[in-house]
Design a protein around this nucleic acid. Sequence first.
DNA 1: TTGTATATTGGAAACGTTTCCAATTTATAT
DNA 2: ATATAAATTGGAAACGTTTCCAATATACAA
Lengths: 336, 336
Amino acid sequence: MTIKDIALCCGVSVSTVSRVLNNHPNVSEAAREKVLCAIREHHFVPNGSARDLVKLESDAVGLVLRGIANSFFAELIPTMDQLILDAGYTPILHQIRSDMDELDAAAKLARAKRLKGLILLGGSNDYTQEQIAALDVPFVLCTYTNSFGNLTPEQYSSVTIDDRRTGCAAAKLLLERGHRRIAILLDSIRDRSVSELRWMGFREALEEAGVPFDPALLAETVSYDMAGAYSRTKKLLADGEAFTALFAVSDAMAIAAIRALHEAGRSVPEDCSVVSVDGIALTRYTIPSLTTFVQPQKEIVCTAVQTLIDLIEGRGPNRQIVLNAVPRFGQSVRQL
Amino acid sequence: MTIKDIALCCGVSVSTVSRVLNNHPNVSEAAREKVLCAIREHHFVPNGSARDLVKLESDAVGLVLRGIANSFFAELIPTMDQLILDAGYTPILHQIRSDMDELDAAAKLARAKRLKGLILLGGSNDYTQEQIAALDVPFVLCTYTNSFGNLTPEQYSSVTIDDRRTGCAAAKLLLERGHRRIAILLDSIRDRSVSELRWMGFREALEEAGVPFDPALLAETVSYDMAGAYSRTKKLLADGEAFTALFAVSDAMAIAAIRALHEAGRSVPEDCSVVSVDGIALTRYTIPSLTTFVQPQKEIVCTAVQTLIDLIEGRGPNRQIVLNAVPRFGQSVRQL
DNA sequence: TTGTATATTGGAAACGTTTCCAATTTATAT
DNA sequence: ATATAAATTGGAAACGTTTCCAATATACAA
């Protein structure tokens, strides 16, 4: 079924059918009626490829995500998808294997599908000028890691939370309550990750307060999951390290750590205070409920989409937006 | 940049460039080298629309999801996306607003993008014969609700878990341990939902065991989230209902319920046993850890994708696959 | 009635590819 | 050198739309 078939069976020209499909005003009521009827009857839907081809542009926006390791991003996707749809664009989700160059893949995608714009989830901003130039559509880096900062603020847009500052705030929260020996539980810091940034902030806060940090209290997990956090905490306890508080870089890790503490006969917050980051809904209901720095998920998504749309539609220049995680107090922290 | 430009700047014909792009054997080494070089230099990527148009088919598979209410599906998406990619197809995620007809939208999508196949997430099988006919590509219903069953087994493929049976098994687990007054906590059962199916199974098991069910122990929440489960459990306790066990239709609800019980001075499992469904990773680490019926998420996703690929590639007929949730024992249940 | 303005229509080119077929070049055998 | 086969190449049609432009039909005024 093509536009031609519809034209034929209605006794009108191809142009007329096209005009009906596109709501052009110059079509007589009689013709429109006939054509619409035939379209309904034959379940005709115009071929998107042909359309895009002749229009020289699509209304598509790419959502590029590397790997599926991080479930934080996975959770954002449906919401982002919906927001893009609401803005009148067509979202195209594109996952990239973790062993590939995401910017390269994004550039290919943008060209192949003539995308209007791109949202890059969880990349970094140490891309080369060349790579950015190759990517010739508006784009927004969303919760990227600001590692080398090869780019000037004019060259890119981004929405992120300030992980360093969050780590700093978490440490301060515990320091203010009299804690001095604080363990930190994080996943691999090798790759300039979120973990590393939070860890940096944490260290800074300690230094600023003049509190020395015992390297034995740095608990880095091998596997990025709860099992890893659980066993690493067990090890920390087995090693006989003394600490009155623990900062976990995610709620999930905190929950696993609390179980390890519990099994070692140490209850939270009586024997050990716990602070984490994420603010997943569950943390209000665990026993004890968690004191956690809530990531403004919804705000991140909305801001990223809005920023991209603004860029696409020519409103405003590139801008970097930094959002903050705010603490929500639960029962997992006590004053010493 | 088009194939024509590349041809021009290499001094070869359009056909030759196309052959290089498609790895046709009939290209001299010299020509291939020249063309590849030009492609690299100009960052040329062939236009997907033009390609699809002339090929009369794409390698795309649609992933249709209605609404984003259910986070269970949201979690499946990235995995499914990856699996489809691995199978050599291009996944296209398409969310449909909850006030629209998902089958209609799916049919449109299939035609517009010449899809190879469709996976419909969380629909039902009470579609009309006509709708199914309109949808002229292979499709798989994934975790749909088998409500009216308008279709014969030859007409559709599906992958689902047996919710009725799960409810039944949960009740049996508690009955076997001596519990007789069992509360059930579920979200709205109005819409032939998963909740209703589990509730039906639960009731059947009680009947079969000759245990009467006290309607006061049926706790239906208004809002589908933890806040709703928490306050509903509070109400159940405030009403002074006596029960020695509680069956929650999701882990999240169970955790919220346990907190409500805890705040009322009733500990789990000493004063009340709790069983739930889902098997999210967290349930191993909460205190107490949960006894829960684990949904075979990964298996559902793999099976759905594999079934679709088989259909597309002409291997095997339509089939309905029913998977079972299996119990994982935690500390939340005790023998009376 | 005729002329003019307006509404409607159809024809045809264009979008960027792929692929068939015929033409050309190159290699091989005689 | 010539004939033949094989490898390589270019030309052109086709895919299904949109849109410009010219042509036709219709309405209205003089």
